[in-house]
Design a protein around this nucleic acid. Structure first.
Length: 899
DNA sequence: CACTCCCGCCAATTA
DNA sequence: TAATTGGCGGGAGTG
């Protein structure tokens, strides 16, 4: 039946195709015409427009296999003109292929093809995960309905309702929804998490038994908390709507169920929730009566919600084996940590927008993309806020979602991807395991830190509930920040502790941001970009985890990268590159998604929205690194303007750290794409032009390069030139994928002697350079990829995981050494060595890495004020590459400063 | 048979 | 009143 209908419809809805075939849309556009003869198209395009075209498309989208089959069919079938043959086609098919009967069947939309999940994916494909702030995309249900051909409207409501519950969209009017994308997602999740804690609270304390507990809790909760309360919580989630006065239907709505469902995940330590438990809890909340039918209905609804959430990459289906047997369940794979502070920050910040909820997010988004002016404004506000932020900072893994990774993988579909994924998975597992074990420690540490306040450096954010989560992830890796200073603080302690505890990670966060912050903050170490990627790939929720584990990951990733590097990196980069101008394209669903997804994490970082959010994100401790980065990025921009605080060197330092982080983040994102959209965008948008430091990967291509926004950071940060010295230079290095993942980077603040040991070594090498750079705030710095960072540091204890990894890394021996040396940081922060390793990839260097990169770089860099000469870079690169010998990574600073 | 979850009736809301 | 939303549960598809 459907087929026929469609056939008729076909003429009208050429459009359908677009949405339909994710993969091909891009290419399709012109070709798509139904009219065009099949033959021509066939290769690329499966079919001409035929009655069954939609189905085919769907099918193809659904599975490659089917696609192939269809192709085969095409071969058989004579030329058909879509128009004419409409119905006949279908017949023909039948007739034509007996063998292909299955195809026929396939064509018949299988149930799966109509699944809400698939539908949701198509829907999502049409919109960018992180739409530019400026573009406000409105969704017309009618349009969507037509585009998604054949989809019943009812289904669209299901999707929209769930998306709305997460504030990915908001309803503006009848048939009109506004697409917000994921910018607000982290915030929303954070809120849900908070709400969830209130409601479900500690219930979930014990993972293993969580189910039981949950169940119990659910009941308790119910008892404890009257339904009435629930509503409020929910409402909170929807800032926009001031509480739905009318609770009537809406209270039970899919929206609320969706939010509660998500809350359960966020609150659950295991992050796994079985449907029956969820149903029970939800029912209880809603009503006491738990009759079977109701339960069944609830479960049905939960499936609906779960399908959408799965499409969003927030959860995945798993099975839980219990005494009774194995039960279907879903595991949260979305971001676990959220920037707590975002809200607070915003609230605090004078300028911060009043906008609540969604709107805020929007604003943030806008900021990001937004014109420089806006940004500045914002920045200013943020700056003012910053101190607080710093304090609060956490890491949030927010934006990125695992799924993105997955998507990315899909997109790349490269071996590399798979490898990466595997690695990630492995890492993840390790991490998880580790975390699981260590989590307690970490937590305790953190907690202590919190209590002490002073410990700030290490202490994560204060977030109560979150902390746990945050901590978990980090244990191993610590990224970040370390701050030397803080005499006041127990830095030493902290440090020592960190050093002593490899796992310390989480704590390490810079949070210290606290106003008091100390002056010197030495550096932030970021996991290599690659790490990020991996993380994202991991899906595990936490970026933080990944980050934390960065060491491990890094190693692994490095390996992975080594293996894969070029391709992956390239691909990504290429993708990004492709889109550069338009970072996120709305239009192409498939393409976009992929692109977006791939880059999501990175992108997210890059993207504007983050900025707004970023502050919030920053707060996140554990994950801090990653999240922090994002934030930082934003901040950077802001920061510069904000400078005021800079006055306080010390205070600034923290800022620097942040900034650095940001930079790093920025870099990260940028890096991958060699010439990234982001950058370009940023440049365009931003008034200032950030200078970036580039680190080139020797290898080329692949991986990432680093960019620093020298100018911004420094300038921003250091208000005064004087300060510069004090300021650390924010450098972020992004490791090229290739190798690893290493990471790197730090910009130690030089002024102060860095922190203890590691710094020392590290700082020594780098510091000098950095300092220089710092001085010239604007000066661009280049890091040679090849060169390794300094090296000397003895590996630290933390290294364990990492170290091993190093070897794994394919780095050249030298590199490896350096790496090990690099570890220096280890003591400090991360397990990872911060080193910037550069990979030269000896062999890999394939192609034109240099060429390529340079180009991109140039583009990016070219921005005014940017580095001096691209040429120089190249030189450097070349030299570096060649020079690889330079053990150290050199930072070359071109004193372009004044330009 | 259990799990999924599509389908679409039909009521509540909205315009 | 018509159209839009959306709760709800039957029952079909899947494994």
């Amino acid at each position: 039946e459907n087929i026929f209908d469609r056939s008729r419809m076909a003429p009208k809805t050429p459009i359908k195709n677009q949405p339909m075939d994710l993969s091909k849309q891009k290419g399709c556009t012109p070709e798509r015409n139904p009219i065009t003869p099949v033959k021509i198209i066939d290769r690329p395009q499966p079919d001409p427009w035929t009655p069954t075209a939609n189905l085919k498309i769907l099918v193809s989208a659904a599975s490659p296999d089917m696609r192939d089959r269809e192709k085969k069919k095409e071969l058989f079938r004579p030329i058909e003109n879509s128009e004419q043959s409409d119905t006949p086609d279908s017949l023909q098919y039948d007739i034509v292929d007996d063998s292909t009967v299955d195809e026929f069947e396939k064509q018949r939309p299988s149930r799966k093809q109509k699944s809400l999940g698939l539908l949701c994916q198509k829907f999502l494909a049409r919109y960018p995960n992180y739409p530019l702030s400026t573009e406000k995309t409105t969704i017309s249900l009618d349009e969507v309905a037509s585009i998604l051909a054949g989809v019943e409207r009812r289904r669209i409501y299901d999707i929209v309702n769930v998306l709305e519950s997460l504030h990915l969209v908001s309803r503006v009017a009848k048939n009109q929804y506004c697409w917000h994308g994921r910018h607000n997602l982290s915030q929303t999740l954070k809120r849900l998490h908070e709400a969830g804690e209130l409601q479900y609270g500690e219930l979930m304390t014990f993972q293993h038994k969580e189910q039981d507990l949950e169940y119990k809790f659910g009941e308790r909760k119910k008892e404890t908390i009257p339904d009435s309360q629930d509503r409020p919580l929910l409402d909170f989630s929807e800032p926009d709507c001031i509480s739905a006065s009318a609770n009537s239907r809406k209270d039970k709505s899919l929206r609320i169920m969706s939010q509660k469902f998500v809350m359960l995940f966020l609150v659950s330590k295991t992050k796994i929730v079985t449907l029956d438990i969820a149903a029970k809890i939800l029912i209880e909340e809603t009503q006491d009566t738990v009759d079977h039918s109701k339960f069944k209905t609830k479960v049905r609804r939960l499936y609906d919600i779960a399908n959408v959430l799965t499409s969003l990459g927030l959860i995945k289906k798993v099975h839980v084996t219990e005494e009774r047997g194995r039960k279907p369940a879903f595991k949260w794979i979305g971001p676990v940590e959220f920037p707590e502070k975002i809200d607070e920050l915003r609230g605090h910040s004078p300028t911060s927008d009043p906008l609540p909820g969604t709107q805020r997010g929007a604003c943030a988004q806008y900021q990001t993309s937004a014109t420089g002016k806006q940004r500045f404004t914002r920045h200013a506000s943020f700056n003012s806020v910053q101190p607080c932020e710093a304090t609060r900072r956490k890491v949030s893994s927010e934006p990125n979602s695992p799924h993105q990774e997955s998507q990315a993988c899909i997109v790349n579909s490269d071996e590399n991807c798979s490898k990466m994924i595997n690695l990630a998975a492995v890492c993840r597992q390790k991490i998880e395991e580790d975390t699981g074990n260590k989590a307690c420690d970490t937590k305790t540490i953190l907690d202590s830190a919190k209590n002490s306040d002073i410990t700030l450096p290490f202490s994560l954010l204060p977030v109560p509930g979150d902390s746990d989560f945050c901590v978990n992830p980090l244990p191993q890796a610590v990224f970040p920040v370390i701050r030397a200073d803080v005499p006041n603080f127990s830095l030493p302690n902290g440090i020592s502790s960190q050093a002593s505890h490899p796992s310390m990670p989480a704590a390490s966060k810079p949070e210290n941001g606290k106003p008091t912050l100390v002056p010197n903050q030495p550096f932030l170490c970021f996991p290599s970009s690659s790490l990020f990627m991996l993380c994202s790939g991991l899906q595990e929720n936490n970026l933080s985890e990944s980050l934390s584990t960065a060491g491990d990951l890094g190693n692994k990733s490095a390996e992975a990268q080594a293996a894969v590097p070029p391709p992956v990196c390239q691909k990504r980069s290429s993708h990004k590159c492709s889109s550069p101008s338009a970072p996120v394209d709305d239009e192409e669903p498939a393409a976009k998604k992929q692109t977006l997804e791939q880059s999501d994490l990175p992108l997210s970082l890059v993207e504007p929205k983050k900025p707004s959010e970023s502050p919030k994100a920053e707060s996140a401790p554990g994950s801090g690194c990653s999240s922090a980065v994002h934030l930082e990025t934003n901040r950077l921009d802001r920061a510069s303007p904000a400078a005021p605080e800079a006055a306080n060197k010390e205070s600034t330092k923290p800022l620097h750290c942040q900034e650095q982080e940001k930079q790093s983040q920025n870099k990260d994102p940028d890096e991958p794409p060699s010439g990234n959209e982001h950058i370009s965008k940023e440049n365009a948008n931003q008034p200032f032009q950030p200078q970036y430091l580039y680190v080139q990967p020797t290898a080329g291509l692949s991986s990432f390069n680093f960019l620093f926004s020298a100018n911004q950071a420094p300038g921003a940060i250091s208000l005064a030139a004087n300060q510069l010295p004090s300021l650390s230079v924010p450098c972020v290095m992004v490791p090229s994928a290739a190798l690893a993942s290493f990471p790197l980077v730090c910009s130690p603040s030089f002024t102060s002697p860095l922190s203890p040991v590691p710094d020392g070594s590290f700082s020594a090498a780098a510091s000098a350079n950095f300092s220089m750079s710092s001085l010239a705030s604007t000066t661009p710095i280049l890091l040679s990829t090849t060169a390794v960072v300094t090296p000397k540091v003895s590996p630290t204890p933390s290294a364990d995981p990492q170290q091993p990894a190093h070897p794994t890394l394919h780095l050249s021996p030298v590199l490896t050494r350096s790496c090990s040396a690099v570890k220096l940081d280890s003591p400090m922060c991360m397990g990872h060595p911060v080193t910037l390793v550069k990979l030269q990839q000896p062999s890999s260097a394939p192609l034109t890495p240099k060429n390529i990169r340079p180009a991109h770089h140039e583009a990016f860099f070219k921005t005014p004020g940017s580095l001096g000469d691209p040429v120089a870079w190249k030189k450097n690169e070349g030299n570096q590459t060649r020079n690889a010998s330079s053990v150290q990574r050199r930072l070359e600073i071109s004193s372009t400063s004044p330009d």
